[in-house]
């Protein structure tokens, strides 16, 4: 059963400036005794006392101001940061799409980058070779895939990154902001594919600032504020509280029908 459980987790970053990161300070500090606050490493509490439970089939939007802890929370959920206090349990194969520049080598071709990404996400070379055609078709990059990645536009990189993570049958998909750089047609395609993945067996956590994107991709939401969970509930509730107005009001009836149509299907598929 794919799930993420987090209990009272905190993430504290030690901020080593040049002084405290050096051995000299450590050695001299011992000799001289305690020098009040100067001897201690300042700490930034990026996440404070987070308790979460995300289950299979959930599509969670992550909202909050800049610096509210959305990216840190995603990294906690990916297992990159282990909580400094509290605990977390992640069951399932994690596929994160955070920074599009990282883990991608600009000098090598799209194909080779697909391979490396896939290997990083725990696939074998053979498995990736099988998926390359599928990814090429989904990303619509065609011959561009044999070009070095530095020739790609931002949108093309997003396509490649999404192509890889969605092709490997991940169970836990974690998306940070920044994938908004693709055009509307591809967005629709990506949405269908992500929903499909979540329906099969999986969950999605997506940090984003755009109402439209969140409405398209998610059905519930978490509002992060100053490193804490301020509100957790259905997307509509949370967005209304967060934005101060109900974003669903302005949606066209067709859009509403499309969004609300999906969860019904997904419960059917799940049972």
């Amino acid at each position: 059963m794919v799930s993420i459980e987090v209990w009272n987790a905190s993430v504290d970053f030690p901020i080593f400036d040049a002084k405290s990161r050096s051995l000299k300070k450590l050695a001299l500090g011992k000799v001289g005794g305690k020098i009040g606050s100067e001897g201690r490493v300042p700490i930034i509490e990026a996440l404070h006392d987070i308790t979460l439970s995300i289950k299979e089939g959930d599509r969670v939007g992550l909202v909050g101001h800049n610096g509210a802890g959305k990216s840190t929370l995603l990294r906690l959920l990916a297992g990159i940061y282990e909580p400094t206090r509290g605990s977390s349990r992640i069951t399932g194969k994690v596929a994160p799409v955070f920074d599009l520049g990282v883990g991608m080598d600009p000098e090598i071709s799209g194909y080779e980058n697909i391979m490396i990404r896939g290997l990083f996400l725990g696939m074998t070379r053979k498995q990736m070779e099988k998926r390359v055609d599928d990814i090429a078709e989904f990303t619509e990059l065609g011959d561009y895939l044999s070009m070095p990645l530095r020739t790609y536009s931002t949108g093309m990189r997003v396509r490649l990154a999404l192509g890889v993570v969605t092709s490997i049958d991940p169970e836990i998909l974690l998306l940070d902001e920044g994938i908004g750089a693709v055009d509307a047609a591809f967005m629709a395609k990506a949405r269908d594919r992500l929903r499909d993945l979540v329906r099969r067996s999986g969950l999605l956590v997506f940090a984003n600032h755009s109402d439209e994107t969140l409405i398209e991709f998610c059905d519930s939401a978490i509002w992060m504020d100053e490193g804490q969970v301020k509100q957790q509930g259905s997307l509509r509730e949370v967005l209304t509280a967060y934005k101060g107005h109900d974003p669903f009001e302005y949606l066209s009836p067709e859009t509403l029908a499309r969004i609300s149509g999906e969860p019904v299907l997904s419960t059917n598929g799940g049972e």
Binding site: R75, A78, G79, I80, V94, P96, F98, D99, G101, V102, G103, F120, L121
Partner: peptide
């Protein structure tokens, strides 16, 4: 640093 912070491995 980049890989460590962005991909769990």
């Amino acid at each position: 640093e980049g890989l460590i912070k962005h991909l769990p491995a």
